[in-house]
Every structure is written in structure tokens, then in C-alpha cells.
Design a protein around this nucleic acid. Sequence first.
DNA 1: AGGGTTGTTAGGGG
DNA 2: GCCCCTAACAACCC
Length: 244
Amino acid sequence: MPEGPSILLLKENLMNFVCHQVTSASGNAKFDKDWLPEEVLVDIKTFGKQLYLLFEKVAIRIHLLMFGSYSVNEQTKPEKSLRLRIDFDAGSLFFYTCSAKLVDKSFLEKIDWEADVMSEAWNPKKAKKKLRSLPLAMVCDVLLDQNIFSGVGNIIKNEVLFRIAVHPESLIGNLPTKKVDELIAEARQYSFDFLNWKRDYVLKKHWLVHTKSTCPKCGEKLIRKHLGKTNRRCFYCLQDQKLY
DNA sequence: AGGGTTGTTAGGGG
DNA sequence: GCCCCTAACAACCC
């Protein structure tokens, strides 16, 4: 579920509820839900891996984390794991095993929308500036930094690094400017490829290195190792990905 | 069958 | 306050 493109698809799937009225709400989310009935869902926004359900005065912030899921019009999991259920006049929405919080609408104004790789507001120059301030950071870590590449997750990280032929342990400060530009451009490009493939249920078959054992380019065995401060799984080819 | 994981936050120690 | 580590959360895939 949880990387940026999947959250965009989640938003797509819920847009039918916008402008509709809540009839009831329940679930084990730790916030007051009494205000929800009769509220109208005004809009839905995403920021990276987060989904915001906007109501008149407040918003509900959903983060699926690693294991979260949702369903529409049909309860698919046991009541006890139901985090939030919102019934609208147009149907029902179920969220499971996720983080669900109430946030003030002013919270939305503080978000740096330019950091979202899938947003129209995405600002590659700003990303470059942020990267320049981290010369000693590894590329495998900065790609997962949600303040720089909001929405990028571990799958996107591995695929991007293979596409630009860069070893995950390369230091930002050692990358030629051209490679930094490629890194920034590909983080966005691959996210949209991911989105389109996922929408068509063909994402996995397009993975080049993630969870794979041999390099699609040279046929050598891929390295699979937890690297960087983030200590997340990396899949990479020593021959085709250069260490800077 | 059971360890690993598409993720983040909170808290503690140094 | 910072960096770094750990635990907690808890479902599904191979």
C-alpha cells in the first residue's frame, strides 16, 4: 500500500465521496468522532504518504504506515482491527491498521507541498538545495528523507538508484551535478511510472531490482543488503551501479 | 511456519 | 538540542 503513488490511487478511489455528507462514524481511532455526522467531506489532499480528508473546520490525517489498508462499501476485516469507519450518504469507507489523527486545518498550511515528488508544486531546485546541505549523506538515505522526497519509499528508492546507475552508499557530495539532477528527476519520474503500473495491476512485473536476485542488465547476482542510517533493504548491482 | 517488511513516532542515552 | 538506537505498532507475503 504505502508509498506516494499508492496514496494518490487511494485518493482517486475516494474522490466520489467529496461533497457528500457523513451519516455516521466509528472505529478505534483515538479521537472524538461525535462531530462527524452531518459534516460534508469538502476535499481530499495527499502529501507524500499521507492522506487528508478535509472537512469544514478540521481534517483527518491518515497514514497507512507499513501495514495499513482500506476498503470502500464493504467491511473486509474484523471489527476489532477497524481503525476508522465513515458512512456517507453515498457509501462507506473503512480504514484498518493505520495512523488516523485529527488535525487543525492550519496544519495543512504549514506543509511544504514543494517537497512532494508527485505534486504539481514539486520544486526540484529546492530539493537540490536541500541535498547540497547534506554532502556526507548516502543517496539511499536521502531518497527516503520525507522532507526532501516526500512520497518516496523503499521500492522507489531501489528502482531509482538502479535507473540512474548509482550505488546506494554513494555520498551526495561526491555525485557530479548531473547525477544529482538525474536523481531528483528520476525520483519523480519513477513515482509516476509506479502510479501507472500500479493502477494497471502490473507494478511488480516492472521491478528491475527490488526483490530480484539477478541484474537485468548484465546478469550478475544482485547484492541485497541493509544499508545507511535508515538501514533499509537495498538491491543493487556492483557492476552497473557506480559508487561515488 | 515464521521471519521479514512498500513506515513512522516516541523515548532514552550520550 | 542533536545524533543514534530501540521498541512499538500489527498484517501479509513468500
